[in-house]
Design a protein around this nucleic acid. Structure first.
Length: 422
RNA sequence: GGAGGGCUAGCCUAAUCGGUAAGGCAGCGGUCUUGAAAACCGCGGGGCGAAAGCCCGUGGGGGUUCGAGUCCCUCGCCCUCCGCCA
């Protein structure tokens, strides 16, 4: 959510951001309502002042044994006026709120302007694409043959685009989760969190998933709870409606959770195997930081996520998203894309974003600066570190041998228990 | 699922039959000091305003009333007990 005052002072920039992100929000209508609201507030406040003064007068008269009946009758009318003004104000504010919640965050000035992934900017590459003297197989063939994944039975019990890991496949999944969390906790100084996977509506609103993405999420109707699409949601909302101590910042959290996405309307190509599934595992990094440090913190967040790929020795590239690819709440975002030789493309395994104070304002997360002073909104950031299924894809496809076995990356061997999946 | 008790500012705690939120601690600024502590003074939730000042704010929302921390309804959360349960 943007600050209303900021919108008032920078309407053109806000309109531009709406256009860049292909959102629909009527800024002119918002400003018009804002003007109307301010006039009504002035009138209502004048009447409330009168009511306060006379009410005290009534109390005084009663104490002195005088008859306040005339004042009471007069105030009855004032009270009616106030009530109707407040009702009108409430209506206007609800309309403003509705518009406001649909206004996206403003992209950082350094974000390349563009409309789709072709306009993203590659920042750097890491690692060598492995040379194979045989035709690399796609991961679903390898996984099926090695008995790591059971697509058919998962579909039977839950429908298409669900998977069931089995045997060493399940073991690999668990190994990756532990490896990633251990890295971020022990080496990068994150605190491990295990949050709920079902959250309230307000929680989804706090990080910006609602109202925009309601159709993309699973909802438990009976209790109006949502299955989280990412750990970002519960973990960022941990500090909702709090004032953090500036001396404690930055707060750095890492959380493993399953993630649930309906992926409504995104069926099509590139959805075979493990590329896009309704339930997947992810290790997520979340930071709460002082505003002046947030872009440095974004860089270190990206490096923390990259290190997972480097230790796994998987070739990847870092891409800076253009304005049209930025999510609703993000001001800047880097994607990490790992090379998958079987499907012959780069796959997104991490999105690392700085939301500046957009989420903090929505979720009311503030901090008290070290030198005292007023509480201010923190900046929030998050990034995958990493999403599991595509990391599994990359491991299977990059580490495959000509006989169809898969070598286990060295850093995972203690976690997996074997050197080769065969 | 049922019964009861609670929720006041960063934290802690008051407010008689309904009369317009009293204090304390922490924090920040100042006086004093070589520096610090102590002591004393001030600030100390949000909005509008150049300021004076005004409005709002007792978990959220609504109602009754001239006037609500206080009465009523509703939702959330915490605690105690009963029931059920991996």
């Amino acid at each position: 959510m943007l600050d209303l005052r900021f919108i008032r002072e920078n309407p053109d920039l806000v309109r531009q951001a709406i256009q860049w992100k292909r959102e629909k929000a009527d800024v002119d209508r918002l400003l018009e309502l804002d003007g109307e609201r301010r006039a009504l507030v002035a009138e209502a406040e004048r009447l409330k002042h009168e009511r306060n003064v006379v009410s005290e007068e009534i109390a005084r008269k009663k104490k002195q044994g005088l008859d306040p009946q005339g004042d009471i009758l007069r105030m009855r009318e004032v009270a009616d006026r106030i009530k109707s003004l407040d009702a009108r104000l409430q209506e206007i504010e609800a309309q403003m709120q509705e518009i406001l919640t649909w206004i996206p965050n403003i992209p950082h000035p350094s974000v390349p302007i563009g409309k789709d992934e072709r306009d993203n900017v590659e920042v750097r590459r890491w690692g060598e694409i492995p040379e194979m003297d045989f035709e690399p197989k796609p991961h679903w063939e390898l996984a099926e043959k090695l008995g790591l994944v059971d697509f058919a039975r998962a579909s039977k019990i839950s429908g298409s685009f669900f998977v069931s890991f089995r045997g060493m496949g399940a073991r690999l999944e668990r190994a990756l989760i532990n490896f990633m969390i251990d890295l971020h906790v022990r080496k990068h100084g994150y605190t491990e969190i295990w949050p709920p996977a079902l959250v309230r509506r307000e929680t989804m609103f706090g990080t910006g998933q609602l109202p925009k993405l309601e159709e993309d999420m699973y909802r438990v109707e009976q209790d109006d709870l949502f299955l989280i699409p990412t750990a970002e949601v519960p973990v960022t909302n941990l500090h909702r409606d709090e004032i953090l101590d500036g001396a404690d910042l930055p707060l750095k959290y890492v959380a493993y959770t399953p993630c649930f996405r309906r992926e409504a309307g995104s069926y099509g190509r590139e959805t075979r195997g493990l590329v896009r599934i309704h339930q997947f595992d992810k290790v997520e990094l979340v930071k709460f930081v002082e505003p002046s440090t947030s872009y440095d913190e974004l860089e270190s967040l990206v490096r923390d996520a990259e290190e997972v790929l480097q230790l796994l020795r998987l070739p990847y590239r870092v891409v800076k998203l253009c304005t049209g690819e930025l999510s609703f709440a993000a001001a800047m975002c880097y994607d990490l894309e790992v090379w998958a030789p079987g499907v012959k493309k780069y796959l997104e395994v991490s999105s690392c974003s700085n939301f500046e104070d957009f989420q903090a304002r929505r979720a009311n997360i503030r901090y008290r600066p070290r030198d005292g002073g007023k509480a201010q909104f923190v900046h929030t950031l998050n990034g995958s570190g990493l999403a599991l299924p595509r990391t599994v894809i990359a491991i299977l496809e990059n580490y495959q041998t000509d006989e169809g076995s898969v070598v286990v990356p060295e850093v995972l061997r203690d976690y997996v228990g074997v050197d080769v999946l065969r």
